[in-house]
Design a protein around this nucleic acid. Structure first.
Length: 584
RNA sequence: GUGCCCGUAGCUCAAUUGGAUAGAGCGUCGGCCUCCGGAGCCGAAGGUUACAGGUUCGACUCCUGUCGGGCAUACCA
């Protein structure tokens, strides 16, 4: 059940009847408690369009609207807002339905969309570093969320497994082999560095490396075998990272640049056949009027270099064709950094022009800002190198372990918590440490840069993963104390008598609204702030409304309400890719 | 040069896409533990939303200009 949508539909219908033209009622949760539960903001705009007085129009809308059963009081306020106070019986029925619903009030879609989510996409020549973190975290969250809403999701890991650097790496593997050393690429970073150093200093080796690229592309069996073995080891490293992060990407989702290799000449051929191609300075280009250079001339999208090679625009065009033609995508999300905005705008424009992507296929670049260090500059090690992802995650877990260990000891001394053994503390530290890294990223507006700070993300207070996990553990401690399972009480009838119960119930019912917006706008920070609000509403309820000490049927009602809160928090965090723990 | 993004409390960030008196957290100050986990709760102070104009019932949001920052801008991805 989506309250907002119900109100929107009914009010929009009344608005249509009143002005004779379809106009959105613009229903939103009320900005302030005194304005009720929801407000309609669309009357003023509609009045302007219809050239009538907004307050009069509001009256006309209220005369026509059918909100029976939903609202107990509707008011016109200010220049023409409509404030809606919902009936308690309506909310109560909704909360009881949510408690019984495995999907927590999120309706399945009328027709599932096939959505391709392209994210993570590490370069397999090197070890994963912090530059891959945001794409991996944000993309995985969006994929989880779309799956939950019932869409048909295909994850695509567009790994960098092709290009000149692999010639260098393969040549280096062989050189080590010839001199009797085994090519140890367990430390990818070290292997890449050594081969790069040789490539830069030794002209002979550089020539050999370039020759290897040609051999690899020509399908030379030896090169091919070494290449595959290299990729296998590199992917194994990625999988360790994904596992450590709790990211749901697998081998089956890997569809790298090399997969499009054979298709690149066809892409260029098709563009030529459609008359979109122009040669310029020896390169094959598509010129687009909507992108201009300094002189106001159309900007080129180069799809084939003057030496015959292809570029990432070509690969991305081939990928669009594959995703539309073979995967039957209705919507494709590209989770990559904001600096690539122009690139994707160009690729999308070419894809439309060439009809690789029909107009009804949504192409969206889900851009994000950079991760900055505490100094506000790009996140680097003290020595100025790139930070390896595994080391970052290890440090997060280590810090979380110290935090958890110290806090648990204090809580045990104060008689507030059970003592956790070593094993339990390690598990909690993993959930908290990794959760902190992810939550800090996801709770931020995607498009802005953000400052990475272990201290802030592992802070004991505020809008952090530890706070959310604590809130969950606290709900669960009620059930532990009562000797009950969440599932065993969730069907009890819920009443919303106290204001705090009503506020919590309404918040639970808004879960589906938030899920809707996040799915539409790809803004996980909205889900974070919703969960934070929910946790605070729960705390308000918890402080004001005794659960276990209340007489029946209030006790059962409050237990069921708590169960609902626990399930929504757990589900919400799970969509963010964050684990919950029962005790901490 | 041109294009895109950004500039909000001392700090880190929000603001439901044009809605009502711009909200949280941290930090600061003041309260609350015979009470289901105080990693908590309640309250206070803190703002010319970079600046100057404009559009309208209404602007952090849209338009113009200025200042400051980031990114991109033909053969890396």
């Amino acid at each position: 059940m989506n309250i907002r949508r119900q109100l929107e539909e009914r009010l929009s219908a009344a608005l249509l009847a009143a002005v004779g033209k379809p106009m959105p009622a613009m229903v939103a949760p009320a900005a302030k408690a005194e304005f009720g539960d929801y407000q309609a903001n669309g009357i003023m705009a509609a009045a302007k369009a219809a050239k009538t007085n907004p307050r009069k129009l509001a009256e006309a809308v209220l005369a026509k609207v059918d909100l029976s059963g939903l609202s107990e009081k509707v008011e016109i306020a200010g220049p023409g807002f409509i404030n809606i106070h919902l009936r308690n019986e309506f909310l109560t029925a909704g909360v009881n339905a949510l408690a019984a619903d495995a999907r927590l009030g999120v309706p399945p879609p009328d027709r599932p969309q096939r959505v391709v989510v392209d994210y993570s996409a590490p370069n397999l020549a090197k070890e994963m570093h912090v530059g891959h973190l945001r794409s991996t975290i944000i993309g995985d969250c969006l994929a989880n969320l779309l799956v939950f809403t019932g869409q048909d999701v295909t994850r695509q890991n567009h790994v960098g497994d092709w290009g000149t650097q692999f010639g260098m790496l393969l040549a280096y593997m062989d050189r080590l082999g010839q001199s009797g050393q085994s090519a140890d690429i367990s430390d990818l970073e070290e292997f890449y560095r050594s081969s790069k150093a040789l490539f830069d200093s030794d002209e002979d080796f550089a020539r050999t490396a370039r020759d290897y690229v040609v051999r690899l592309q020509a399908g030379d069996e030896h090169c091919r075998r070494n290449w595959e073995s290299f990729l296998d080891q590199s992917l194994r490293h990625c999988e360790e990272i994904y596992q450590a992060l709790g990211v749901r990407l697998t081998r089956a989702d890997v569809y790298g640049e090399s997969a499009y290799n054979a298709d690149l000449p066809k892409v260029v051929g098709d563009l030529r056949a459609k008359g979109l191609l122009k040669e310029s300075q020896g390169a094959q280009c598509v010129f687009l009027d909507e992108f201009k250079d300094a002189e106001g001339l159309p900007l080129p999208v180069i799809v084939q270099k003057s030496d015959g090679g292809y570029l990432y625009a070509t690969t991305d065009l081939a990928a669009i064709r594959y995703r539309v033609g073979t995967l039957h995508a209705d919507r494709i999300l590209y989770v990559t950094g904001s600096p690539q905005a122009l690139h994707f705008a160009q690729v999308f424009a070419v894809a439309r022009k060439a009809d690789f992507a029909p107009g009804d296929v949504q192409l969206e670049h889900i851009g994000f800002g950079s991760m900055l260090g505490p100094d506000g500059k790009p996140f680097k090690t003290r020595a100025g190198g790139t930070v390896k992802l595994m080391e970052l995650l290890d440090e997060a877990k280590k810090r979380a372990y110290e935090l958890v260990t110290g806090k648990n000891a204090a809580d045990v001394a104060a008689g507030r918590a059970n003592e956790l053994d070593e094993q339990q503390r390690r598990e909690v530290a993993r959930a908290v440490g990794i959760g902190a890294v992810k939550y800090a990223d996801l709770s931020q507006n995607r498009t802005s840069d953000y400052v990475f700070s272990f201290e802030k993300m592992l802070a004991l207070d505020g809008n952090t993963a530890p706070y959310m996990q604590y809130a969950y553990a606290r709900v669960m401690s009620i059930f532990r104390k009562a000797g009950l399972e969440v599932e065993s009480v969730q069907a009890s009838p819920i009443q919303l008598d106290q204001p705090q119960e009503r506020a919590l119930g309404l918040k639970l019912l808004q879960f589906s609204e938030v899920i809707d917006s996040v799915a539409a706008n790809c803004q996980p920070n909205l889900l974070c702030s919703y969960l934070y609000d929910l946790a605070r509403d729960f705390t308000g309820f918890y402080e004001a409304c005794p659960v276990l000490d209340s007489p029946e049927p209030v006790r059962s009602s409050r237990l069921a309400l708590s169960a609902g809160a626990a399930r929504v928090i757990r589900t919400g965090l799970d969509l963010l890719g964050i684990q919950t723990v029962e005790q901490m």
